[in-house]
Simulated scan of single mutants.
Amino acid sequence: MQANQSAAKTQSQPARTALYDLHVELGARLVSFAGFTMPLNYPAGILTEHHHTRSQASLFDVSHMGRFRIQGTDAMLALESVCPADLDALAPDRLRYSVLTNDAGGVIDDVIIRRAGSDFELIANAANRATDEQWLDERIGEQCRISVDEHFALLALQGPTAAQVLRDLNPGVDELVFMQAAHLPLAHIDCLVTRAGYTGEDGFEISVPIAAADKLARRLLADSTVQPAGLGARDSLRLEAGLSLHGQELGPTISPVEAGLGWTIAQTRRADGARAGGFPGSERILRELKQGPARRRRGLLPEGRAPVRAGTPLVDEHGTVIGHVSSGGHSPTLERPIGLGFIETQALDSNTPVFAEIRGRRVAIALTRPPFIPHRYQHSHS
């Protein structure tokens, strides 16, 4: 079945990805997410899918993500005018995690940027596809050609055995390191393979023509170490990895510095660089880099066994609100509740005790710096 991704923008019914029939066949629990019908989990359940990703490899359908092509003689400078990355230093087929910022210094979206010759490719969050397209068109549409690529499905193979699984299909994957891409045939299908993902594990994201997506997915699932996984496990994995989620740790009022993403502001774009600023909200963001933000993201370790959920207020010993929980849940790996949240810098500097206030009851919170589970990205050739 061909995916009609553009239908997500124009119809009230969720669009279906190229793997919809396979999800149904595998017994997935399907939900509406960001305009698409997506698998939340399969019969084995979220916990099993989570543990399997940490121990072997899981296959995720991430075809709902947005994919933009930026073309033009001034594409690099145009793209740098809407994000704080140094794209001149980005080598061909290398990836860069960055953010699209607004004029207030908040984050419109976090994106993966790939240099494709003289062009650039952006992978954006599914829920922000329309917003990103409009923002890019308004800001750089006169300088560049911006196109939405809807001819490919995107599969994520994540986990410690992922490299071996793909190695059996093409040994060329061993040449890739974290945040690098290459055009490689897999099962006689021409694919764009990137060594990246959002689980904290070593893994790959595979761009495959829609017509061949089902065939490749079945080939990968035929490996005894690979199982399907859905949105539920993807979220618990990214939370353990301490990775920000747009709409929770990132948003139009949250600066990248507040969110712990100050490292996405390239040195060449900072106040002392020859190419400083030049991106939306740079005044606020550069000021926060120098002086510090009013609040900061921290990892949360609640006392007891009950998770603290997003939106829960964080208070001091006097009951004064000093922050909030942005993401919270149970860590299957640590077998305890974990979370992410924002806390006023003044409270952090004074080592103020922190509590989550849940229906009039206070739960003590220990603060930590994420990730909760160390990342296992492959940064060098094995």
Rank of each mutant, 00 (worst) to 15 (best):
R139P: 03
L221P: 03
P228F: 05
D190K: 08
V165W: 03
E133I: 10
L220Q: 07
A229E: 01
V177Q: 04
G230C: 12
A156Y: 09
L169I: 01
L154I: 13
L155V: 10
S207I: 14
G200Q: 09
Q134R: 15
Y198R: 06
L169S: 00
D149C: 10
P228W: 07
S224E: 08
R218N: 13
T161S: 14
G203F: 02
L176D: 09
A182K: 10
P171R: 05
M179Q: 14
E133V: 02
A187L: 11
R167I: 09
Q180I: 00
C191F: 07
Q143R: 15
C144L: 05
G200T: 14
I189Y: 01
G159F: 11
A156N: 13
W135I: 14
V208P: 08
P171W: 10
T161V: 13
H188I: 10
I140Q: 04
E142K: 15
L157G: 08
Q134S: 15
F204S: 04
G141T: 00
L231G: 04
A182Y: 12
D214K: 12
G203C: 05
G230E: 06
L186T: 12
Q134H: 13
V148R: 14
P228D: 11
V226T: 09
H188Q: 15
E205I: 02
N170A: 06
I146Q: 12
Y198V: 00
A217Y: 09
